[in-house]
Design a protein around this nucleic acid. Structure first.
Lengths: 143, 143
DNA sequence: ATTACTGCAAAGCATTTGCAACGAA
DNA sequence: TTCGTTGCAAATGCTTTGCAGTAAT
């Protein structure tokens, strides 16, 4: 329970040597209100109306820093762009609808398989993994 | 055993309504000689010396068509670019070394888990998935 | 006063596309 | 003669970077 974003809090930031700028606060707030798998563009278009001078570059730089700080996690749904989610939830993966983008959380993690245990012991030190399942949700499939 | 690339064969192509151009033949040959997880750039730089007029666009277009035809499969190692491999091998996933790029095949497929069976039956029609594990191989880890 | 952070514009990379010429069938 | 395919150049989409000014500590 060390690194969680619970609101516009500064604690996690200062520990990492990050400063709490207005832009960063706004971005963290937006991340919260987003409650889904968001992109840099999502954050940008959400904030732009109330922060006309905010630049996309700032959003990217912040998402990068927050990722490094462990506050958010980078996801890859194979769309050619990155998505993020807040870190600290139970470890999970996703089932993604290719049409509407709806996602369902999969709590089962494929990393717990004996074949990987064997490999891991002998030849590899595993540091990360990625598991995403694609398909069509009931709603989209019936169209 | 329907769609395999075994050399500069035309059978698979004609079935798909694809023409066997010099460029396509060269690309298929290169794919063979590549025997690893290659990128569009890999194919391009391999062929360029002997095919000075070959364009990257042609490589991309061919990889796309060959993927559609099921002869090769698109991979995503989270590098911000696509990799491909020849289809027809036993279904598998990869353990990828983040330093040297070495890959180890994982024959276990996480799609066979009861949680997914349940979801699949009720809400989703699963059409694809992605499972890659990252880490450092023994050799790179000891550096 | 430092020095992290920002906006802006330009650059970077992988990939795609429009179009006229080309060449398999 | 078709019409799938190609080369070229330009365009796209996402992301990064250089730089000079700004602001948090």
């Amino acid at each position: 329970m060390s690194s969680e974003i619970k609101g516009p809090e500064t604690d996690n930031l200062s520990i990492q040597g990050l400063r709490l700028t207005k832009q960063r606060a706004a971005i963290m707030q937006a991340i919260h209100d987003m409650n889904s798998h968001f992109t840099a563009e999502d954050i940008y278009t959400t904030l732009k109306p109330d922060h006309p001078r905010l630049s996309l570059a700032t959003v990217y730089r912040n998402l990068e820093r927050l990722t490094q700080a462990g506050l958010i996690t980078k996801l890859n749904f194979g769309e050619g762009k990155n998505r993020y989610e807040i870190t600290g939830l139970e470890h999970h993966h996703h089932l993604v609808c290719l049409l509407c983008g709806k996602t369902v959380r999969i709590t089962h993690c494929p990393l717990n398989c004996s074949q990987l245990d064997d490999l891991s012991k002998s030849d590899f030190r595993i540091t990360g993994h990625q598991f995403e399942v694609y398909g069509y949700c009931k709603r989209c499939d019936s169209k």
